[in-house]
């Protein structure tokens, strides 16, 4: 091929893909997080929750993924939509906020994270498919936002997102109260996520929780381990002694096969 000398772009593969598409070949899709994520504000902070299923089409791609992302030491963010987009957009904002903290020497605010996220998502007109539940505590108190892929935001006392959002919202609408205790809030969020895990096909596996207060963060990975493994792979494979029957036994005398020769020490030249 002479393309290497010419430079520029080669569109051969586009033609090939068009040809495949005409023949009815399905291209592989992106890994999406058909998801249940939720959050609520309680007496002294915010509780965020997420399921742990990641899907590619109708296949479960990861049975125990992490959907609660770090934004700042006092701010976390649940992500639904295309996994790559939620991962990268939260990572970018986390990085920008860290630099901002070095520049100002003050704690990050939740609204700042929200504004950075919506500005980015609006710029890409919905092509960055990240649907987020952003929560945290700053000097103004607890805050909770939903951020849509097109760049709109809502500030709410309780919020849900993802394909299981309707299931989770039904639980919140029935059980939410102002100024709940930490335990009540954790139980309600876990119940909302569980409702998504049980009733929504896109959501499944386990429940992650993240509790943020002014005194710190408690990240409870697999707070509810709903899908216990039926089989655990052993590596290295171990067999209990006696599990293999002895058919034949032979003993060799190694001294008959090996000859031991004593070596002479050699002088080394050190000039």
């Amino acid at each position: 091929m002479e393309t290497a000398q010419q430079g520029g772009f080669s569109f051969d593969l586009c033609k090939r893909n068009e040809f495949f598409a005409a023949k009815g070949v399905q291209h592989p899709g992106f890994t999406k997080t058909g998801t249940t994520i939720a959050g609520l504000i309680f007496k002294d902070g915010v509780v965020l929750g997420a399921d742990t299923r990641s899907t590619a089409g109708s296949t479960v791609a990861d049975k125990n993924c992490e959907k609660i992302h770090f934004i700042a030491p006092n701010i976390y963010c649940c992500g639904a939509g295309t996994a790559a987009d939620t991962e990268n957009v939260t990572g970018m904002v986390a990085s920008q906020l860290e630099l901002h903290r070095y520049a100002t020497g003050t704690q990050s605010r939740v609204v700042t994270a929200m504004t950075l996220l919506k500005g980015h998502l609006f710029k890409y007109q919905g092509h960055v498919s990240a649907a987020l539940v952003l929560g945290g505590v700053d000097f103004r108190g607890p805050h909770l936002f939903t951020v849509y892929p097109h760049g709109s935001t809502d500030s709410l006392p309780f919020a849900t997102m993802g394909s299981g959002s309707l299931n989770a919202m039904a639980v919140f609408e029935a059980g939410f109260k102002d100024d709940m205790s930490r335990e009540e809030a954790m139980a309600l969020v876990a119940r909302a996520i569980r409702s998504g895990v049980m009733n929504d096909l896109g959501s499944g596996s386990n429940v992650d929780l993240c509790i943020i207060t002014k005194d710190g963060v408690e990240y409870l990975r697999n707070h509810e381990y709903l899908q216990t493994k039926t089989y655990e792979r052993q590596f290295p494979q171990k067999f209990a002694s006696g599990s293999v029957p002895v058919v034949r036994e032979r003993v060799y005398d190694i001294r008959r096969a090996v000859q031991v020769v004593e070596g002479e020490p050699m002088e080394m030249e050190v000039s």
């Binding site: 919506k118 609006f122 097109h150 760049g151 709410l156």
Partner: peptide, 28 residues
């Protein structure tokens, strides 16, 4: 998606805007 939305947004201390249409477009 939100049953307690605030569609009356401040532009300055004494000027506000009522928004209708796409939430993303009008917020930004």
């Amino acid at each position: 998606a939100n049953r307690v939305t605030d569609k009356i947004t401040p532009l300055t201390d004494r000027v506000y805007i009522c928004r209708s249409g796409s939430a993303a477009d009008t917020q930004n």
